[in-house]
């Protein structure tokens, strides 16, 4: 799945205003390249569910890093699906 928040340089908790501003500031070439970014991120309903699934992909990406996942099935090619999702850092200190 595409990580639009990462493409925009925003966090998942960004509000609509920030997202729209960021999109408007992007060059047209990049907007054209990221065709679905604008459609998904500027639609409140779509972005709401995208945001929720975005969290899951980030969680999955974090899970795949666990050595406990060695030998787990990967019928969905999760490692490839979450290639754009990487948690910034662990939360050991939080």
């Amino acid at each position: 799945m595409r990580n639009y928040y990462d493409a925009l340089g925003l966090s998942r908790q960004s509000n609509t205003h920030d997202i729209v501003d960021t999109i408007n500031s992007l060059p047209h070439e990049q907007i054209a390249e990221e065709g679905d970014l604008q459609a998904v991120m500027q639609n409140d309903d779509w972005r709401t569910h995208y945001q929720r699934v975005h969290l899951q992909y980030e969680a999955i990406a974090a899970t795949l890093n666990s050595p406990a996942m060695n030998g787990a099935e990967n019928s969905h090619s999760w490692d490839k699906r979450v290639v754009e999702f990487e948690p910034a850092q662990d939360t050991l200190d939080r």
Partner: peptide, 22 residues
């Protein structure tokens, strides 16, 4: 049945749980 391969062990041969969160 593709499987994930994370060959990280704790030195004893058993897979070590490296906690990532509090």
């Amino acid at each position: 049945t593709k499987r994930i391969s994370n060959e990280l062990t704790n030195g004893t041969g058993a897979q070590a749980i490296a906690w990532q969160s509090a």
